[in-house]
Design a protein around this nucleic acid. Structure first.
Length: 422
DNA sequence: TCTGGGGTCCTAGGACCC
DNA sequence: TCTGGGGTCCTAGGACCC
């Protein structure tokens, strides 16, 4: 049996955990730059606030209903996620962490036993971390995801829905009540095209002919249909398959057209990306850099250039930054108001499998490694950016808006909440 | 005024090879 | 008038996910 465990309204629940006064109130968490809504408490959903809705279109509604809007606090969410994943790992030897707030678990036991385990792990996460999760159980990942949706939507399941425990008539009714677009792998576009073929519900999709959909759409949709019928198509649960690419990008606080702050931004993002790279013990064999103007500004000329440059596989911040800057110089054109820049590392290989090179200088490589290790240690102990390239700059125009960030309760000593006993 | 960031996979089409 | 067939690799773009 495959279980999909998913935190309810994850970011919003994290905020409520440390500010109990927010419980029962409409709470939304905003994306970087305070741009879009990325998480909503149940009360905020009930107000009709949509996922990814631009915050600036909601301000009037929010004022009327006393919606609390918070900037995202990834230090907090990342730490609580790690705690939950550790608790869940104790319930199965086979865990696939799928995103910050959900993971698949293989529960080997029979159907009844699996459902009992699911109820137990749900209670344990609640007890040890304090956050609510929902569990869906099915024979394929797609069915487990679907069961998880049902667990969230129908209160009578009390957070755990196991298709194996239900009668086939009940499962059919649940599938009939789920729109096709609610199935994992069917997005907005596909849902529209399926509706034109008379396929509106998950049940109708389950009964569709996969070969016909394969011809008309893609192999991905055919797999989804087979998975809905209990045929495993989506690879076994795997512990963190190795990354193919690694991206660091940000929108700016305001539009920028000068080359200097753009270069500083690219150095900053390449530095972040290099840190992630070393943390995962990987080398990059190519550096991509891209720029973007604001696509919502129809009144401004648009330009979205990108370029990928190869280099000898490395995890040295200096080399990655230099290469990214070479790319930036080649794609930059004056006269555009840029809204976003990013650095993409690809051609990733494990550091342990570094290829020897004919003209490599082993002494330089050893120095590079020692330097990067020292920089990472200093920054880990004394705070990010304690040691950094001067070229990173700190132009305030680049910095994101984050007007309502909560404290990093669990990862910064000076922000740990203090309970007074008086 | 204000519209996220980080990923994966698939497909079509072009370049290139023999 | 007539301009091959078969294969691989790469890239861009689209769709999807959270």
């Amino acid at each position: 049996m495959i279980a999909l465990v998913d935190c309810n309204n994850f970011y919003a629940s994290c905020e409520q955990l440390f500010r109990p006064a927010l419980q029962g109130r409409p709470v939304v968490v905003l994306s970087n730059n305070d741009g879009c809504v990325v998480a909503r408490s149940a009360e905020a959903k009930a107000l009709g606030i949509g996922m990814a809705a631009p915050w600036h279109t909601l301000k009037a509604l929010a004022r009327r209903h006393g919606v609390v809007a918070l900037s995202s606090n990834y230090a907090l969410y990342g730490d609580l996620s790690a705690r939950i994943m550790r608790v869940l790992a104790g319930f199965s030897p086979c865990q696939e962490v799928y995103s910050i707030d959900e993971c698949f678990l293989e529960l080997e036991d029979g159907r009844r036993q699996a459902a009992a385990t699911a109820r137990q792990l749900r209670a344990e996460v609640r007890r040890l971390v304090g956050l609510p999760v929902s569990v869906g159980l099915g024979t394929t990942k797609t069915l487990a995801k679907l069961a998880n949706n049902c667990a969230k939507k129908c209160p009578e399941f009390a957070g755990v829905c196991s298709f194996g425990e239900l009668s086939s008539a009940t499962v059919e009714a649940l599938l009939a009540a789920t729109p096709a677009g609610g199935v994992w792998g069917v997005g907005e576009r596909l849902a529209r095209q399926l509706a034109a073929l008379g396929i509106h519900s998950a049940l109708e999709l389950q009964r569709a002919d996969p070969d016909r959909l394969r011809q008309r759409f893609s192999v991905t949709l055919a797999r989804t249909v087979r998975e809905l019928n209990g045929e495993v198509c989506l690879g076994p649960l795997a512990a963190a398959v190795s990354r193919r690419q690694l991206l660091s990008s940000r929108s700016f606080g305001e539009l920028i057209d000068d080359p200097e702050p753009l270069a500083e931004a690219v150095v900053a993002y390449a530095t972040r990306a290099a840190e992630k790279l070393r943390r995962q013990a990987l080398l990059a064999g190519a550096v991509g850099v891209f720029l973007r103007t604001n696509p919502f500004r129809a009144d401004l000329p648009q330009y979205q250039p990108s370029l990928i440059l190869p280099l000898s596989p490395t995890d040295d911040t200096r080399l990655l930054c230099q290469t990214a800057l070479v790319g930036l110089r080649r794609i930059y054109r004056p006269g555009y108001a840029y809204q976003k820049a990013g650095v993409l590392l690809t051609e990733l290989t494990p550091t342990a499998r570094r290829q020897g090179e004919l003209f490599a200088d082993p002494a330089a490589q050893a120095r590079s490694q020692a330097l990067m290790t020292a920089v990472d240690r200093l920054n880990a102990h004394m705070g990010r950016g304690t040691v950094r390239l001067l070229a990173e700059g700190a132009d305030p125009r680049r910095m994101m808006r984050a007007a309502h960030r909560s404290p990093r309760y669990t990862t910064r000593l000076d922000e740990v909440p203090v309970v007074r006993s008086d």
